[in-house]
Design a protein around this nucleic acid. Structure first.
Lengths: 202, 202
DNA sequence: GGAAACTCTGAATGATGGTTCACTGCTTGC
DNA sequence: GCAAGCAGTGAACCATCATTCAGAGTTTCC
Protein backbone atom coordinates (compact mmCIF):
# COMPACT_ATOMS: atom_id res chain seq x y z
CA UNK A 1 0.00 0.00 0.00
CA UNK A 2 2.36 2.64 -1.21
CA UNK A 3 -0.09 4.59 -3.32
CA UNK A 4 -3.57 5.90 -2.61
CA UNK A 5 -5.33 8.65 -4.54
CA UNK A 6 -5.27 11.84 -2.57
CA UNK A 7 -8.39 14.05 -2.72
CA UNK A 8 -6.58 16.52 -4.90
CA UNK A 9 -5.65 13.75 -7.30
CA UNK A 10 -9.26 12.55 -7.45
CA UNK A 11 -10.39 16.06 -8.21
CA UNK A 12 -7.77 16.38 -10.90
CA UNK A 13 -8.96 13.14 -12.55
CA UNK A 14 -12.58 14.19 -12.39
CA UNK A 15 -11.71 17.53 -13.88
CA UNK A 16 -9.84 15.77 -16.67
CA UNK A 17 -12.90 13.66 -17.35
CA UNK A 18 -15.15 16.70 -17.39
CA UNK A 19 -12.77 18.46 -19.69
CA UNK A 20 -12.81 15.47 -22.01
CA UNK A 21 -16.60 15.38 -22.09
CA UNK A 22 -16.74 19.11 -22.73
CA UNK A 23 -14.22 18.94 -25.56
CA UNK A 24 -15.95 15.94 -27.06
CA UNK A 25 -19.22 17.85 -26.97
CA UNK A 26 -17.61 20.72 -28.84
CA UNK A 27 -16.16 18.42 -31.45
CA UNK A 28 -19.51 16.70 -31.95
CA UNK A 29 -21.29 20.04 -32.21
CA UNK A 30 -18.81 21.15 -34.84
CA UNK A 31 -18.35 18.09 -37.01
CA UNK A 32 -21.08 15.65 -35.99
CA UNK A 33 -20.88 12.18 -34.52
CA UNK A 34 -19.54 10.46 -37.60
CA UNK A 35 -16.47 12.70 -37.88
CA UNK A 36 -15.76 12.76 -34.17
CA UNK A 37 -13.06 10.08 -34.06
CA UNK A 38 -11.31 9.17 -30.83
CA UNK A 39 -8.19 10.83 -32.15
CA UNK A 40 -10.01 14.05 -33.01
CA UNK A 41 -11.64 14.20 -29.59
CA UNK A 42 -8.42 13.39 -27.78
CA UNK A 43 -6.57 16.05 -29.78
CA UNK A 44 -9.24 18.60 -28.88
CA UNK A 45 -8.83 17.72 -25.21
CA UNK A 46 -5.05 17.85 -25.49
CA UNK A 47 -4.50 14.23 -24.52
CA UNK A 48 -3.45 11.05 -26.29
CA UNK A 49 -5.99 8.76 -27.88
CA UNK A 50 -5.20 6.01 -25.42
CA UNK A 51 -5.94 8.26 -22.47
CA UNK A 52 -9.58 8.44 -23.42
CA UNK A 53 -9.82 4.85 -22.24
CA UNK A 54 -8.85 5.80 -18.72
CA UNK A 55 -12.10 7.67 -18.41
CA UNK A 56 -14.41 5.64 -20.62
CA UNK A 57 -14.42 1.95 -21.53
CA UNK A 58 -15.19 2.67 -25.17
CA UNK A 59 -15.83 5.39 -27.65
CA UNK A 60 -19.53 4.57 -27.56
CA UNK A 61 -19.63 5.11 -23.79
CA UNK A 62 -18.10 8.56 -24.19
CA UNK A 63 -20.52 9.41 -26.99
CA UNK A 64 -23.46 8.32 -24.86
CA UNK A 65 -22.23 10.45 -21.99
CA UNK A 66 -21.90 13.45 -24.27
CA UNK A 67 -25.41 12.93 -25.59
CA UNK A 68 -26.94 12.38 -22.17
CA UNK A 69 -25.44 15.49 -20.67
CA UNK A 70 -26.57 17.72 -23.51
CA UNK A 71 -29.98 16.08 -23.71
CA UNK A 72 -30.54 16.36 -19.98
CA UNK A 73 -29.76 20.08 -20.06
CA UNK A 74 -32.32 20.69 -22.77
CA UNK A 75 -35.01 18.49 -21.26
CA UNK A 76 -34.56 20.16 -17.90
CA UNK A 77 -34.95 23.62 -19.34
CA UNK A 78 -37.94 22.81 -21.53
CA UNK A 79 -39.48 20.73 -18.75
CA UNK A 80 -39.20 23.70 -16.41
CA UNK A 81 -41.04 25.92 -18.85
CA UNK A 82 -43.74 23.37 -19.68
CA UNK A 83 -44.38 22.51 -16.05
CA UNK A 84 -44.49 26.07 -14.79
CA UNK A 85 -47.57 27.58 -13.18
CA UNK A 86 -50.47 28.88 -15.19
CA UNK A 87 -52.26 28.48 -18.48
CA UNK A 88 -51.30 25.21 -20.26
CA UNK A 89 -51.63 26.76 -23.70
CA UNK A 90 -49.37 29.63 -22.77
CA UNK A 91 -46.84 27.19 -21.37
CA UNK A 92 -46.92 25.17 -24.56
CA UNK A 93 -46.32 28.30 -26.61
CA UNK A 94 -43.46 29.34 -24.39
CA UNK A 95 -41.97 25.84 -24.39
CA UNK A 96 -41.86 25.71 -28.17
CA UNK A 97 -40.40 29.18 -28.27
CA UNK A 98 -37.64 28.35 -25.79
CA UNK A 99 -36.89 25.09 -27.56
CA UNK A 100 -36.49 26.82 -30.89
CA UNK A 101 -34.51 29.71 -29.52
CA UNK A 102 -32.05 27.47 -27.72
CA UNK A 103 -31.65 25.24 -30.77
CA UNK A 104 -30.97 28.20 -33.04
CA UNK A 105 -28.50 29.61 -30.56
CA UNK A 106 -26.48 26.40 -30.42
CA UNK A 107 -27.06 24.95 -33.83
CA UNK A 108 -24.31 22.40 -33.92
CA UNK A 109 -25.35 20.79 -30.69
CA UNK A 110 -29.04 20.96 -31.54
CA UNK A 111 -28.36 19.26 -34.83
CA UNK A 112 -26.32 16.58 -33.08
CA UNK A 113 -29.15 15.96 -30.63
CA UNK A 114 -31.96 16.02 -33.16
CA UNK A 115 -30.77 14.77 -36.49
CA UNK A 116 -27.08 14.14 -37.10
CA UNK A 117 -26.24 10.55 -38.09
CA UNK A 118 -25.03 8.66 -35.05
CA UNK A 119 -23.95 5.18 -34.08
CA UNK A 120 -26.53 2.79 -32.65
CA UNK A 121 -25.88 3.45 -28.98
CA UNK A 122 -26.34 7.17 -29.46
CA UNK A 123 -29.36 6.59 -31.67
CA UNK A 124 -30.92 4.63 -28.83
CA UNK A 125 -30.31 7.54 -26.49
CA UNK A 126 -31.91 9.85 -28.99
CA UNK A 127 -35.08 7.78 -28.96
CA UNK A 128 -35.17 8.13 -25.20
CA UNK A 129 -34.53 11.84 -25.50
CA UNK A 130 -37.47 12.27 -27.84
CA UNK A 131 -39.62 10.13 -25.60
CA UNK A 132 -38.95 12.55 -22.78
CA UNK A 133 -40.28 15.38 -24.92
CA UNK A 134 -43.31 13.26 -25.76
CA UNK A 135 -44.00 12.86 -22.08
CA UNK A 136 -43.60 16.56 -21.34
CA UNK A 137 -45.80 17.67 -24.24
CA UNK A 138 -48.40 15.03 -23.47
CA UNK A 139 -48.73 16.36 -19.94
CA UNK A 140 -49.41 19.90 -21.11
CA UNK A 141 -51.87 18.72 -23.73
CA UNK A 142 -53.75 16.68 -21.17
CA UNK A 143 -53.90 19.63 -18.80
CA UNK A 144 -55.13 21.78 -21.64
CA UNK A 145 -57.90 19.33 -22.38
CA UNK A 146 -58.82 19.07 -18.71
CA UNK A 147 -59.03 22.85 -18.52
CA UNK A 148 -61.29 22.91 -21.59
CA UNK A 149 -58.72 24.92 -23.53
CA UNK A 150 -57.96 22.17 -26.03
CA UNK A 151 -60.34 19.88 -27.91
CA UNK A 152 -60.58 16.18 -27.21
CA UNK A 153 -57.63 14.35 -28.77
CA UNK A 154 -55.06 11.64 -28.17
CA UNK A 155 -52.48 13.54 -26.15
CA UNK A 156 -49.69 11.06 -26.81
CA UNK A 157 -50.10 11.32 -30.55
CA UNK A 158 -50.24 15.09 -30.46
CA UNK A 159 -47.15 15.09 -28.26
CA UNK A 160 -45.21 12.90 -30.68
CA UNK A 161 -46.40 15.07 -33.55
CA UNK A 162 -45.23 18.22 -31.81
CA UNK A 163 -41.81 16.71 -31.22
CA UNK A 164 -41.47 15.64 -34.83
CA UNK A 165 -42.90 18.83 -36.25
CA UNK A 166 -40.64 21.13 -34.26
CA UNK A 167 -37.62 19.01 -35.05
CA UNK A 168 -38.29 18.89 -38.77
CA UNK A 169 -39.01 22.60 -39.04
CA UNK A 170 -35.78 23.41 -37.21
CA UNK A 171 -33.51 20.93 -38.98
CA UNK A 172 -33.43 22.97 -42.18
CA UNK A 173 -32.43 26.25 -40.54
CA UNK A 174 -30.04 24.38 -38.23
CA UNK A 175 -28.12 23.01 -41.18
CA UNK A 176 -28.18 26.32 -43.05
CA UNK A 177 -25.67 28.98 -42.18
CA UNK A 178 -27.72 32.10 -42.60
CA UNK A 179 -29.56 33.39 -39.59
CA UNK A 180 -32.20 35.30 -41.47
CA UNK A 181 -35.72 35.69 -40.20
CA UNK A 182 -35.26 33.85 -36.92
CA UNK A 183 -38.03 35.89 -35.39
CA UNK A 184 -40.58 35.02 -38.04
CA UNK A 185 -39.54 31.39 -37.92
CA UNK A 186 -40.19 31.18 -34.20
CA UNK A 187 -43.51 33.01 -34.50
CA UNK A 188 -44.71 30.67 -37.25
CA UNK A 189 -43.45 27.63 -35.40
CA UNK A 190 -45.30 28.46 -32.20
CA UNK A 191 -48.45 29.30 -34.14
CA UNK A 192 -48.25 25.94 -35.88
CA UNK A 193 -47.72 24.11 -32.58
CA UNK A 194 -50.76 25.74 -31.04
CA UNK A 195 -52.90 24.86 -34.06
CA UNK A 196 -51.55 21.33 -33.90
CA UNK A 197 -52.76 20.98 -30.34
CA UNK A 198 -56.06 22.58 -31.32
CA UNK A 199 -55.75 25.86 -29.45
CA UNK A 200 -58.21 28.43 -30.82
CA UNK A 201 -56.60 31.17 -32.92
CA UNK A 202 -55.62 34.21 -30.83
CA UNK B 1 -15.46 -7.92 -82.85
CA UNK B 2 -16.28 -11.44 -81.88
CA UNK B 3 -18.68 -10.61 -79.11
CA UNK B 4 -21.62 -8.26 -78.96
CA UNK B 5 -24.40 -8.37 -76.39
CA UNK B 6 -27.47 -9.91 -77.91
CA UNK B 7 -30.83 -8.39 -76.92
CA UNK B 8 -31.59 -11.44 -74.83
CA UNK B 9 -28.31 -11.04 -72.99
CA UNK B 10 -29.03 -7.37 -72.36
CA UNK B 11 -32.41 -8.29 -70.99
CA UNK B 12 -30.85 -10.94 -68.78
CA UNK B 13 -28.36 -8.43 -67.35
CA UNK B 14 -31.06 -5.86 -66.73
CA UNK B 15 -33.19 -8.46 -65.03
CA UNK B 16 -30.24 -9.43 -62.85
CA UNK B 17 -29.80 -5.81 -61.88
CA UNK B 18 -33.48 -5.46 -61.08
CA UNK B 19 -33.36 -8.62 -59.07
CA UNK B 20 -30.39 -7.29 -57.14
CA UNK B 21 -32.16 -4.02 -56.37
CA UNK B 22 -35.28 -5.88 -55.28
CA UNK B 23 -33.35 -8.23 -53.00
CA UNK B 24 -31.33 -5.36 -51.57
CA UNK B 25 -34.58 -3.55 -50.83
CA UNK B 26 -35.87 -6.59 -48.97
CA UNK B 27 -32.70 -6.90 -46.95
CA UNK B 28 -32.76 -3.23 -46.05
CA UNK B 29 -36.42 -3.44 -45.08
CA UNK B 30 -35.64 -6.39 -42.84
CA UNK B 31 -32.39 -5.43 -41.16
CA UNK B 32 -31.84 -1.75 -41.92
CA UNK B 33 -29.07 0.01 -43.80
CA UNK B 34 -26.35 -0.57 -41.26
CA UNK B 35 -26.71 -4.36 -41.29
CA UNK B 36 -27.15 -4.63 -45.04
CA UNK B 37 -23.57 -5.56 -45.96
CA UNK B 38 -22.57 -6.25 -49.54
CA UNK B 39 -22.21 -9.92 -48.66
CA UNK B 40 -25.68 -10.10 -47.11
CA UNK B 41 -27.27 -8.42 -50.10
CA UNK B 42 -25.37 -10.58 -52.59
CA UNK B 43 -26.34 -13.71 -50.68
CA UNK B 44 -29.98 -12.66 -50.75
CA UNK B 45 -29.75 -12.18 -54.50
CA UNK B 46 -27.95 -15.50 -54.93
CA UNK B 47 -24.81 -14.01 -56.42
CA UNK B 48 -21.23 -13.48 -55.26
CA UNK B 49 -20.22 -10.30 -53.49
CA UNK B 50 -17.98 -9.31 -56.39
CA UNK B 51 -20.85 -9.51 -58.84
CA UNK B 52 -22.57 -6.58 -57.20
CA UNK B 53 -19.87 -4.42 -58.74
CA UNK B 54 -20.89 -5.35 -62.25
CA UNK B 55 -24.14 -3.53 -61.71
CA UNK B 56 -23.10 -0.75 -59.36
CA UNK B 57 -19.78 1.04 -58.90
CA UNK B 58 -20.06 0.97 -55.12
CA UNK B 59 -22.22 -0.14 -52.26
CA UNK B 60 -23.31 3.45 -51.75
CA UNK B 61 -24.55 3.64 -55.35
CA UNK B 62 -26.67 0.53 -54.84
CA UNK B 63 -28.02 1.88 -51.57
CA UNK B 64 -28.93 5.17 -53.22
CA UNK B 65 -30.72 3.31 -56.02
CA UNK B 66 -32.67 1.27 -53.49
CA UNK B 67 -33.67 4.39 -51.61
CA UNK B 68 -34.60 6.34 -54.73
CA UNK B 69 -36.81 3.62 -56.10
CA UNK B 70 -38.71 3.15 -52.88
CA UNK B 71 -38.92 6.88 -52.23
CA UNK B 72 -40.15 7.60 -55.74
CA UNK B 73 -42.93 5.03 -55.39
CA UNK B 74 -44.17 6.63 -52.18
CA UNK B 75 -43.89 10.19 -53.40
CA UNK B 76 -45.74 9.32 -56.59
CA UNK B 77 -48.61 7.74 -54.73
CA UNK B 78 -48.94 10.47 -52.11
CA UNK B 79 -48.45 13.13 -54.77
CA UNK B 80 -51.29 11.64 -56.78
CA UNK B 81 -53.60 11.82 -53.81
CA UNK B 82 -52.57 15.32 -52.77
CA UNK B 83 -52.85 16.71 -56.30
CA UNK B 84 -56.19 15.13 -57.12
CA UNK B 85 -59.26 17.16 -57.95
CA UNK B 86 -61.39 18.78 -55.31
CA UNK B 87 -61.29 20.13 -51.79
CA UNK B 88 -57.71 20.77 -50.60
CA UNK B 89 -58.53 19.90 -47.01
CA UNK B 90 -60.07 16.60 -48.02
CA UNK B 91 -57.02 15.83 -50.13
CA UNK B 92 -54.72 16.59 -47.22
CA UNK B 93 -56.70 14.28 -44.98
CA UNK B 94 -56.63 11.55 -47.56
CA UNK B 95 -52.92 12.06 -48.25
CA UNK B 96 -52.04 11.62 -44.59
CA UNK B 97 -54.26 8.59 -44.38
CA UNK B 98 -52.70 6.92 -47.41
CA UNK B 99 -49.21 7.76 -46.18
CA UNK B 100 -49.86 6.19 -42.81
CA UNK B 101 -51.63 3.15 -44.19
CA UNK B 102 -48.86 2.39 -46.65
CA UNK B 103 -46.18 2.87 -44.00
CA UNK B 104 -47.94 0.55 -41.58
CA UNK B 105 -48.41 -2.03 -44.30
CA UNK B 106 -44.71 -2.09 -45.16
CA UNK B 107 -43.11 -1.21 -41.88
CA UNK B 108 -39.57 -2.27 -42.59
CA UNK B 109 -39.33 -0.21 -45.73
CA UNK B 110 -41.11 2.75 -44.20
CA UNK B 111 -38.69 2.70 -41.31
CA UNK B 112 -35.75 2.51 -43.71
CA UNK B 113 -37.07 5.51 -45.63
CA UNK B 114 -38.00 7.61 -42.64
CA UNK B 115 -35.72 6.90 -39.75
CA UNK B 116 -33.26 4.00 -39.91
CA UNK B 117 -29.61 5.01 -39.51
CA UNK B 118 -27.99 5.26 -42.94
CA UNK B 119 -24.68 6.23 -44.47
CA UNK B 120 -24.18 9.80 -45.67
CA UNK B 121 -25.15 9.27 -49.30
CA UNK B 122 -28.45 7.72 -48.31
CA UNK B 123 -28.99 10.36 -45.65
CA UNK B 124 -28.64 12.99 -48.35
CA UNK B 125 -31.28 11.23 -50.43
CA UNK B 126 -33.53 11.16 -47.42
CA UNK B 127 -33.29 14.92 -47.08
CA UNK B 128 -34.38 15.21 -50.69
CA UNK B 129 -37.18 12.74 -50.10
CA UNK B 130 -38.51 14.77 -47.21
CA UNK B 131 -38.19 17.95 -49.25
CA UNK B 132 -40.46 16.43 -51.84
CA UNK B 133 -43.09 15.91 -49.18
CA UNK B 134 -42.59 19.47 -48.03
CA UNK B 135 -43.30 20.66 -51.54
CA UNK B 136 -46.38 18.50 -51.92
CA UNK B 137 -47.84 19.50 -48.57
CA UNK B 138 -46.99 23.15 -49.11
CA UNK B 139 -48.97 23.14 -52.36
CA UNK B 140 -52.09 21.79 -50.70
CA UNK B 141 -51.78 24.20 -47.80
CA UNK B 142 -51.43 27.13 -50.18
CA UNK B 143 -54.46 26.01 -52.14
CA UNK B 144 -56.37 25.65 -48.91
CA UNK B 145 -55.49 29.20 -47.95
CA UNK B 146 -56.42 30.50 -51.39
CA UNK B 147 -59.77 28.76 -51.09
CA UNK B 148 -60.34 30.34 -47.68
CA UNK B 149 -60.44 26.91 -46.05
CA UNK B 150 -57.25 27.40 -44.06
CA UNK B 151 -56.11 30.39 -42.01
CA UNK B 152 -53.21 32.56 -43.06
CA UNK B 153 -49.91 30.82 -42.29
CA UNK B 154 -46.46 30.08 -43.64
CA UNK B 155 -47.19 27.13 -45.89
CA UNK B 156 -43.61 25.93 -46.04
CA UNK B 157 -43.32 25.73 -42.28
CA UNK B 158 -46.62 23.94 -41.94
CA UNK B 159 -45.54 21.54 -44.68
CA UNK B 160 -42.27 20.76 -42.90
CA UNK B 161 -44.15 20.36 -39.65
CA UNK B 162 -46.60 17.92 -41.22
CA UNK B 163 -43.75 15.85 -42.61
CA UNK B 164 -41.98 15.71 -39.28
CA UNK B 165 -45.14 15.15 -37.26
CA UNK B 166 -46.37 12.27 -39.37
CA UNK B 167 -42.95 10.68 -39.41
CA UNK B 168 -42.48 10.92 -35.67
CA UNK B 169 -45.94 9.62 -34.86
CA UNK B 170 -45.39 6.65 -37.14
CA UNK B 171 -41.84 5.80 -36.12
CA UNK B 172 -42.93 4.36 -32.79
CA UNK B 173 -45.56 2.00 -34.21
CA UNK B 174 -43.24 1.16 -37.12
CA UNK B 175 -40.57 -0.09 -34.76
CA UNK B 176 -43.05 -1.91 -32.54
CA UNK B 177 -44.27 -5.31 -33.58
CA UNK B 178 -47.84 -5.19 -32.43
CA UNK B 179 -50.41 -3.99 -34.90
CA UNK B 180 -52.95 -2.91 -32.36
CA UNK B 181 -55.26 0.02 -32.93
CA UNK B 182 -54.09 0.91 -36.41
CA UNK B 183 -57.47 2.40 -37.14
CA UNK B 184 -57.48 4.73 -34.19
CA UNK B 185 -53.89 5.69 -34.90
CA UNK B 186 -54.74 6.76 -38.43
CA UNK B 187 -57.83 8.61 -37.33
CA UNK B 188 -55.94 10.55 -34.67
CA UNK B 189 -53.08 11.22 -37.03
CA UNK B 190 -55.29 12.73 -39.72
CA UNK B 191 -57.17 14.78 -37.14
CA UNK B 192 -53.87 16.12 -35.85
CA UNK B 193 -52.68 16.95 -39.37
CA UNK B 194 -55.84 18.90 -40.12
CA UNK B 195 -55.57 20.83 -36.86
CA UNK B 196 -51.93 21.51 -37.67
CA UNK B 197 -52.90 23.11 -40.97
CA UNK B 198 -55.67 25.01 -39.20
CA UNK B 199 -58.68 23.26 -40.74
CA UNK B 200 -61.81 23.91 -38.65
CA UNK B 201 -62.97 20.91 -36.61
CA UNK B 202 -65.47 18.75 -38.47
C1' DG C 1 -14.84 -25.92 -83.39
C1' DG C 2 -12.47 -22.09 -81.66
C1' DA C 3 -10.83 -17.45 -80.56
C1' DA C 4 -12.39 -13.25 -78.47
C1' DA C 5 -14.87 -10.92 -75.19
C1' DC C 6 -17.69 -10.98 -71.52
C1' DT C 7 -19.85 -12.48 -66.79
C1' DC C 8 -19.22 -14.50 -62.49
C1' DT C 9 -16.67 -16.07 -58.55
C1' DG C 10 -14.75 -15.65 -53.85
C1' DA C 11 -10.48 -15.33 -51.63
C1' DA C 12 -7.01 -11.74 -51.12
C1' DT C 13 -6.36 -6.84 -50.52
C1' DG C 14 -6.71 -2.41 -48.38
C1' DA C 15 -8.50 1.37 -45.72
C1' DT C 16 -10.49 2.89 -41.75
C1' DG C 17 -10.58 3.70 -37.00
C1' DG C 18 -11.37 1.72 -32.38
C1' DT C 19 -8.62 -0.55 -28.96
C1' DT C 20 -4.51 -2.37 -26.63
C1' DC C 21 -0.08 -2.38 -24.33
C1' DA C 22 4.83 -1.86 -23.23
C1' DC C 23 6.93 2.01 -21.73
C1' DT C 24 7.79 6.65 -19.61
C1' DG C 25 7.23 9.64 -15.97
C1' DC C 26 4.73 11.26 -11.94
C1' DT C 27 2.59 10.70 -7.22
C1' DT C 28 2.31 8.45 -2.81
C1' DG C 29 3.70 6.83 1.66
C1' DC C 30 7.63 5.48 4.28
C1' DG D 1 15.52 8.97 -1.40
C1' DC D 2 13.08 5.05 -2.76
C1' DA D 3 10.01 1.33 -4.01
C1' DA D 4 5.27 0.58 -5.48
C1' DG D 5 1.60 1.77 -8.20
C1' DC D 6 -0.90 4.74 -11.13
C1' DA D 7 -1.78 8.16 -15.20
C1' DG D 8 -0.45 9.22 -19.76
C1' DT D 9 1.55 8.12 -24.28
C1' DG D 10 1.21 6.83 -29.14
C1' DA D 11 2.57 3.42 -32.18
C1' DA D 12 1.17 -1.26 -33.11
C1' DC D 13 -2.67 -4.24 -33.30
C1' DC D 14 -6.94 -5.96 -34.83
C1' DA D 15 -11.67 -6.40 -36.67
C1' DT D 16 -14.67 -5.11 -40.08
C1' DC D 17 -16.10 -4.67 -44.53
C1' DA D 18 -15.98 -2.58 -49.09
C1' DT D 19 -13.43 -3.38 -53.06
C1' DT D 20 -10.34 -5.75 -56.37
C1' DC D 21 -8.61 -9.26 -59.45
C1' DA D 22 -6.88 -13.54 -61.44
C1' DG D 23 -9.00 -17.35 -62.93
C1' DA D 24 -13.09 -20.28 -64.34
C1' DG D 25 -17.15 -20.57 -66.92
C1' DT D 26 -20.34 -18.55 -70.84
C1' DT D 27 -21.77 -16.43 -74.83
C1' DT D 28 -20.95 -14.67 -79.48
C1' DC D 29 -19.69 -14.86 -84.09
C1' DC D 30 -16.99 -16.68 -87.91
Amino acid sequence: MAYRKTPAEIRRLEAAREHLVACATSVVAEVGWAQASVTAVADAAGIAAGSVYQHFPSKAALAVEVFRRAAAREVTVIGGVLQAEGDPVGRLRRGVEVFARRALENRGLAHALLAAPADPKVAAERIDYRRRYHTLFAEVVHEGMAAGLLPKQNGEITAAALTGAIGEVLVGPLAAHDESATGELIAELTAMALRCAGAPAA
